[in-house]
Design a protein around this nucleic acid. Sequence first.
DNA 1: CCCCAAAATCTTGTATACAAAATGCTTGAC
DNA 2: GTCAAGCATTTTGTATACAAGATTTTGGGG
Lengths: 218, 218
Amino acid sequence: MERRRSEKIAQDLEEAIFDGTFADGARLDEVRLAREFGVSRTPLREAIQRLALSGLVELIPRRGAFVRQPGLAELMEMFEVMAELEAVCARFAALRISDAALLELRDANAKCLAAVEARDADAYYFENERFHKTIYRESGNAFLEEETLRLHRRLKPFRRQQLRFRGRLTQSMAEHEAVVDALEAGDAGTAAARLREHVAVQGEKFHDLRMSFRSAAE
Amino acid sequence: MERRRSEKIAQDLEEAIFDGTFADGARLDEVRLAREFGVSRTPLREAIQRLALSGLVELIPRRGAFVRQPGLAELMEMFEVMAELEAVCARFAALRISDAALLELRDANAKCLAAVEARDADAYYFENERFHKTIYRESGNAFLEEETLRLHRRLKPFRRQQLRFRGRLTQSMAEHEAVVDALEAGDAGTAAARLREHVAVQGEKFHDLRMSFRSAAE
DNA sequence: CCCCAAAATCTTGTATACAAAATGCTTGAC
DNA sequence: GTCAAGCATTTTGTATACAAGATTTTGGGG
């Protein structure tokens, strides 16, 4: 826990932006939010600054902070980079992964599959995250792990919507298993390619989803 | 230019940290720096926060901000990631690069080579940066471009020391040309591999350099 | 009736004042 | 003499007050 007030406020605001409480382009009124959080403007400004550096809000001098939701094109780009980063993690991990981590990946997948069959969305997400984060960690490069986690967090709210696709989940599990097979075999190229494809498909599915949303809404 | 005071202070502090004005672990005294910059603590704190989010300083609650120079191990990791990011840029660029950009790459290389022969270090760095940044841009993924630029900036002070290696520069130019050849041919795999190797070598050379510094200093 | 300009208001950016916490120093006891 | 406890000092975190710029509103003129 850092300086807890501005830290917590930043998290809350982030959540609110992800929730869609703040629409794209909405202005973050400092005094209003300060009242709402029951603090002065100072910690709130620090929180806003933090969000600005994360790219969630745009800071216009003397004008204020405006929510900056990524558009569809930018999201596709982010998913593309996510796929590449995970592929790099997999490539490194194929050479460096420990036996214990391989067991953890198998375990996460087993529990993930169980969650799918039990229709337990929360458990599915938890185990799915454990799977991916384990690969980041086993890349053996702490900086890469951190950067990949950063993007993972940023894309989290958009990834979440994919549960709506029936049948995608079991397919996803099969892809996970194939990745682990390649990692176990120490086949860096295959592991990278499979994980890249696995994540890229998420981006594409997301694309479809957004499109259907758009046409349904307007 | 954002809120210019805290923005400028952050840049100055960043520069000072890179220069080695602040040693690793040094505390950034708010009141002292505020006096030094002739501002109050408020904009200075915002600048420090910014640096903290960039990872240049560590913020310990109720203790203060401490300069956090990356150690050798972390730097190697960062160069490793840099090589991978640039490789991804090259892979994308191979499919998307424009003829104009290819000409720009050749032009940058030519001027770079001229700078080497003229022993013009500044010109060399300028053109070298132009070369790499052009490839980032031609990846056709603005988000990837931005993220790669971020890491590029962060590694800049450490890359700068490589001029000391005689003979490395002409070799480096040859590698650049080979990368452009692959891009021109649209050979994504080769372009990626060559650029990855080019950047990875920088990291290794840097490693050697630091080692020699260490043994010389202590 | 509309448009332009000036003033008033609102909001951000900065400074200062205050509170809380941590560190270090001093003093006292064993 | 040393260790511990309490107090003082220093420093961060927060609140509030002040200044500067931007926007909006109002009033006057065309």
